[in-house]
Amino acid sequence: MPTLESALVISNNQVSSHMFEMELAAPQIVPFCEPGQFVHLRVNSLNDPLLRRPLSLYDVDKKRGTITLLYKVVGKGTTSLAQLHADEYVDVMGPLGRPFSYPPAGQWAILVGGGVGIAPLLYLARRLKEKNYPVRVLYGTQSSSELVALDRFRQLGVQTVAATMDGEADYQGLVTDLLYQQLSGQEVEYLYTCGPEPMMAEVAEYARQYGLNGEVSLEEHMACGVGACLGCARKLKDSDEGYVKVCKDGPVFGLYEVELDLAPR
């Protein structure tokens, strides 16, 4: 059951030029957390910025009762979050939204993440590993200095290949090009992707070509986070009459449920 708790900040560290990693003690929320879900944070108690900020679960430690979030400082809300110190409290709602599902037995889980979009894939990788799925992670960023999640995936013991444009990681180029290269043809893949929409669109195109299934995690500005305000509406397909709520019907959707834009939105 989702709930609201005042969570103790255990750490809030800068991990690259614009990214932070925050660990929170949230013992009431943790037992219900599934990969792909998000928490809704009130970044301060000043009502400025006013609205909560949704952040996907980067990692969850059920024994310690903690959740870890990875976020990029892009505006007022995340700037305010970055100013939180250890031993301060932050108001957290969650877990919210529809989680990832697990692949059919025997399939490989291929996780394709770009930039800060890697966040929900770490906790997913952990859970897939616990369930003994074979997992491969393809992780793309602009430069190798932004590969902030790489060590965490490697510590999990999942096969992880990094693609950057600067040529200082495993592969030079786009993570979606890497996706085609790593295809062995020997195994059936179930794809999970989160990142910039054009990247996810390429992943969906790859899936279509090879007849593979999978899921995407979408991002949208939100107000309530629980399906009440209808602010985070999105059409799954251009021809659809109605809208879905990314917060409640998603943020995870089937790879073929949603039409993704190749051009940046």
């Binding site: 305000c229 602010g231 509406a233 999105r234």
Partner: peptide
């Protein structure tokens, strides 16, 4: 159906 996004 409501308005197209962005709505908020």
């Amino acid at each position: 159906a409501g308005n197209p996004p962005p709505r908020i």
